[in-house]
Write a protein that binds this DNA or RNA. Structure first.
Lengths: 221, 221
DNA sequence: CAAATAACTGAACGTTCGTTTAGTATCCTG
DNA sequence: CAGGATACTAAACGAACGTTCAGTTATTTG
């Protein structure tokens, strides 16, 4: 189960331990002493390297964001998102990263907003590009809002991976889990599942109830 | 901003304060002293009523689950899920409840599993029933797994309500926010957004890569 | 109205937390 | 190989935590 990450800097080892601990016990629930014990060092050394517990938190955030972007870049460059084998390798290495990501998104922190924003920006671009490639049809509304809903749906699966793992009987943070759930996701996105007419009709009914269909953002408080 | 909940039992007031605090600061991050201060009582009284901090946590869980079931029951009975006005009223009252629910789901607790399981059971039933009413088409795979994916998608929106609120400029835990995002959700579910053929084709490609297409749950560890 | 029960408080307890400090080992550098 | 930086530890500090306890006020009950 332990990765090939044995010969690391002590600093990196402490950070990796924290990345596993924070999602499990929360920031406040994770003690500096527990991190130190897991990393096999004294509590004082943790603060020597990161200044404070909050400094360690920031370092974890930065590292995970960096790794996520790296993963994404690599997936695009190597075309891994079409190659299940490559996905498998990436996932195995990235499991703690994904777990940390899911946790961070739930904290409502600044980092969470940043990550969500990055994803939305990327999916928005994909929506626009997708039209040219024929992947995306013509659609109504704001692409950014459409992207936000899509991202929320996808990240929902990430944040609830524990529950989905139970439902599917396969760890959802592995390639195997991803492959097991993908057909069900695609069945929804392809429009196979729901009756098109009823859905489109319901959508129009709701749109007609909107007080101001296209007014941007007004201060409600 | 404060609800009409002024004339409550002290015990209920403490519980309501805790329901607002736990999602904001986490269980460990929320102190008994803070709860007591918000409720205008002494810390000792909190423990007098709930035995311990963990006891208070359990009481909150129970109450929120109860309220959620009550909301669902009421929505079905009054047909409120088709009536935006009724939805608005329900949501206004239930905002802290929804926020607590979203938090609980992210903790991976036993309560989270219970809530997720309940939702999956209900949506599974709706999938089966939906076929008779024409809302649901014929589809492949296990209805329970399909339901799990659907529930995860929907709850993703709930758990990331902070981010969606920012993206939409409307509080997502209000009826107004629900109405603003619903068209985008329905646009996905109706199959309007993605190209049907490409999606269906991708799905089949993935299904063919599955080692054991219909084997139920095997121990991977 | 007296007695009993419940609601509630102030002060203190032992524990554990993040952090500091002073000092020791280890490593690089000229 | 001296010497300065860096890696690292043991011990302790004050603050804040959940909880306890003895005592006081309010409410119910016969």
């Amino acid at each position: 189960m332990r990765s090939v990450t044995e010969d690391l800097t002590t600093r990196a080892r402490i950070r990796d331990v924290a990345i596993e601990r924070f999602p499990k016990d929360g920031f406040v629930g994770t003690t500096v002493r527990a991190i130190a014990k897991d990393a096999g060092v004294s509590p004082a050394l943790v603060l020597h390297h990161f200044g404070s517990k909050e400094g360690l938190h920031r370092a974890c955030d930065e590292y995970v964001v960096h790794m996520t972007m790296e993963m994404k870049r690599e997936a695009v460059e190597t075309g891994a998102y079409r190659n299940p084998g490559a996905i498998a390798a990436t996932y195995q290495l990235a499991e703690p990263t994904l777990r940390y990501l899911a946790w961070t998104l739930g904290t409502g922190s600044e980092t969470a907003a940043r990550i969500f924003g990055d994803f939305v920006a990327e999916v928005t671009a994909q929506l626009v590009e997708g039209k040219e490639h024929g992947l995306i049809n013509e659609y109504h509304g704001d692409p950014r809002k459409q992207a936000a809903v899509l991202v929320a749906m996808q990240l929902g699966g990430l944040m609830l991976h524990d529950q989905l793992t139970r439902a599917f009987g396969v760890d959802m943070l592995t390639a195997e889990g991803l492959m097991a759930s993908a057909p069900y996701t695609l069945q929804i996105f392809s429009g196979e599942l729901f009756n098109r007419e009823i859905m489109a009709q319901t959508k129009q009914t709701i749109e007609q109830l909107q007080p101001t269909p296209d007014t941007e953002q007004r201060a409600t408080k």
